[in-house]
């Protein structure tokens, strides 16, 4: 029995299921070893992994829509930038202040807006992103407007500063792994199951005793905190922040990563962020056609792996099933 084709293919399937995530992790390792500018690309990818992992909790697990996650990245980013560069706070303390501010904002924003559903929620969150962007532009005394804030120190505690590219990348990798681990634990907790349940049917979830509104709000705040952390990491790595860096393009990029990687899957954000981060670099030699090739690649991925690269094993399974007749038919 152990040698039957079924067993072998099921083992292969299990391996295949983890292959995309392992490949993405492999790219991170390669970047750490290589140390070239790929460090920057992968570094951004890891920061986006955290941002998208947060979005995934709200969108993938809880089935809601938010076009305004850039607002929370902005709060984290500007809190860290202003408090460290202007007021000389240590980065960790500034990051915590950013997280607290983000959580409060997400609560205040989410409490009224999460009554809305579908398109209305999407529009409301979109507005939040635009408002925070405008605040970053207009509140010049604090944000310095379009000129941005520079001179943001590197990450560090006390006298230890993460200055080298490799050290920063390793730190980002650790943060990304922790974020994904937290996301996995959350998904497999009572809370996570409740989120997936309410995304399937709010009424069915309510009938099981789930407090739908409270859970949606909690998921929103958690995803906002993820965004805040990614914003903080971003400003400390780049050392500069301006409103253009927290605009709508951030949301579009994150959505692409989420869907390409696999919405609702734990490792999807990592896969999506690394693939979407590296894709333009791998086709940079196409010069003027870079955007065209990028678009074509995206379309191909979404056609052939509609559930995202993380569920590539499902695609292969389906292919095998159409080739070989099904062995058992469910009653």
């Amino acid at each position: 029995m152990t040698n039957s084709p079924a067993t072998i293919s099921s083992k292969l399937m299990a391996a295949l299921r983890h292959a995309p995530a392992i490949a993405a992790a492999g790219m991170v390792a390669y970047a750490i070893a290589d140390g070239g500018y790929i460090v920057t690309v992968v570094g951004f990818g890891l920061i986006y992994t955290i941002f998208v992992a947060g979005l995934n909790i709200f969108m993938g697990y809880a089935g809601q829509t938010s076009f305004g996650q850039n607002a929370f990245a902005a709060i984290g980013a500007y809190a860290s930038a202003v408090l460290t560069a202007t007021y000389g706070w240590p980065p960790l303390l500034a990051a915590l202040a950013g997280i607290v501010a983000t959580a409060i904002c997400a609560f205040v924003i989410g409490y009224p807006t999460l009554r809305l559903k579908g398109h209305y929620l999407a529009m409301a969150t979109l507005a939040i992103g635009l408002i925070i962007y405008e605040v970053a532009v207009q509140w010049q005394s604090v944000t310095n407007g379009y000129m941005g804030i520079s001179g943001i120190p590197a990450l560090g505690i006390g006298h230890y500063e993460l200055l080298s590219d490799r050290a920063q990348l390793i730190f980002l990798a650790i943060m990304a792994v922790l974020s994904l681990a937290a996301s996995w634990l959350l998904r497999h907790s009572r809370f996570g199951r409740a989120l997936v349940a309410l995304s399937g049917s709010e009424d069915a979830a309510r009938a099981l005793g789930i407090n739908v509104r409270q859970y949606k709000l909690t998921a929103f705040i958690i995803s906002a905190i993820y965004a805040s952390i990614s914003g903080t990491l971003f400003v400390h790595i780049v050392g500069f922040i301006s409103p253009e860096m927290i605009g709508m393009n951030m949301v579009i990029l994150a959505f692409t990563m989420l869907y390409v990687g696999g919405i609702g899957t734990t490792t999807g954000p990592l896969i999506g962020a690394i693939v979407i981060g590296l894709l333009p670099e791998s086709i940079r030699s196409f010069k003027d056609y870079q955007d065209l090739v990028y678009g074509a690649a995206l379309i191909l991925i979404l056609i052939y792996a509609p559930g995202g690269i993380a569920s590539l094993d499902q695609v292969v399974k389906k292919l095998l099933r159409t080739k070989a007749p099904a062995k058992e038919v469910a009653p």
Binding site: R193, A194, G200, I210
Partner: peptide, 24 residues
Amino acid sequence: ALVPEGRGIFGPMSVEENLQLGAY
């Protein structure tokens, strides 16, 4: 406990997770 019209099971989740949710 209500078994809703159209069953209201959570398709993407495993059978076990659905049962765990029953004992929420």
